[in-house]
């Protein structure tokens, strides 16, 4: 296996949890809801995902448990922000606190246990193609699932009527409501989708990355996912680029050290965040009249009756 191929494989794996979580958050934000609790949903997804896989011996059941846990967490968020019109920023932060606590309680039963990781695919003929075979057909299934998910989300947002309505709800909930669309119901499904993706992203870590659960193992990836959505200016295509760029920076920083290149690692680590700010300023400037952010992002909506 060549070095470049190996690096690409590592980047794909490192980017997948970011891409999964960010895809979910993108849909949530497109519907006008800002859920800052991604980290909390992810870590509960990781704990439940590992628990499910350990008890059942099946990675798929583990992944489903992770998704389910993420959805349950997001339902709390939906109940608060959509049902009770509570501020989304405060609720999202509270959700993260709750998630860290819950995951610790759930995970304490599984300390020191080990499962077998999700297998890497092997398609005879295809996976053995030199150079590209391992990359295109030889990673674990989640890697390809995350890409399929982004394509699906793109198709949904831009090629279906429901996607159009969802975006309308995120841009101007008053008009969408006036046109007779159930803004709150649309937002609830968007939030649940975000929770499912975050739960799966969290579960990816113990199921496909490191076969054990440790409290706090998401180590801030949920916050990075939030940054990625902005970096991508809420566009699915750019999200893929952003996630892989971020993964690449992370992995290449490690390789650079192995080659003996001396760059302050803090500067390398700060680059993605600085880049996100610059991108945000640039895209906001490019479009007169504000940013490409969903116009109603983060605002409370209570239908007038």
């Amino acid at each position: 296996m060549g070095l470049i191929e190996a690096i690409i494989l590592a980047v794909l794996a490192a980017s997948t949890p970011l891409l999964l979580a960010a895809t979910g958050e993108l849909v949530t934000e497109r519907a006008g809801v800002l859920n800052l609790g991604v980290e909390g949903m992810m870590i509960v997804g990781a704990a439940c995902g590992f628990g499910g896989a350990w008890l059942s011996g099946s990675v798929i059941i583990g992944a489903l448990c992770g998704i389910g846990a993420g959805v349950l967490m997001s339902l709390i968020f939906a109940l608060m922000t959509l049902g009770l019109a509570v501020n989304q920023v405060a609720t999202g932060l509270a959700l993260t606190i709750l998630g860290i606590g819950l995951s610790g309680l759930i995970g304490s039963r599984f300390v020191g246990e080990k499962i077998s990781l999700a297998p890497h695919l092997h398609i005879p003929g295809l996976t053995d193609i030199p150079l590209v075979g391992r990359i295109l057909f030889g990673e674990d299934a989640f890697v390809y699932l995350s890409l399929a998910l982004v394509i699906g989300v793109w198709f949904f947002l831009y090629r279906t009527r429901t996607g159009l309505i969802l975006r309308a709800a995120g841009d101007n909930h008053t008009s969408a409501h006036a046109l007779g669309y159930p803004v709150l119901r649309i937002r609830m499904f968007a939030v649940m989708f975000g929770g499912a993706c975050a739960g799966l992203a969290g579960a990816y870590l113990p199921l496909a990355y490191t076969p054990f659960f440790i409290p706090g193992m998401t180590a801030g990836r949920g916050w990075i996912a939030l940054a990625l959505v902005v970096f991508a200016s809420w566009l699915p295509g750019r999200l893929v680029i952003g996630a892989y760029l971020f993964g690449a920076v992370t992995i290449l920083q490690l390789h650079a050290q192995g080659w003996g290149v001396g760059v302050p690692s803090q500067l390398m680590s700060a680059l993605p965040y600085l880049a996100t700010i610059i991108v945000l300023v640039l895209i906001s400037r490019a479009r007169t009249g504000g940013s490409t952010a969903p116009a109603a992002l983060g605002t409370v909506f209570v239908p007038d009756r």
Binding site: A6, I7, A10, A14, P17, L205, Y209, T210, F212, I214, G216, M217, A219, R221, T250, I251, L254, H255, G258
Partner: peptide
């Protein structure tokens, strides 16, 4: 302590 990063470093 960041299992993901430790794994990435080992791969590199």
């Amino acid at each position: 302590f960041d299992p993901g990063k430790e794994a990435d470093a080992a791969k590199a």
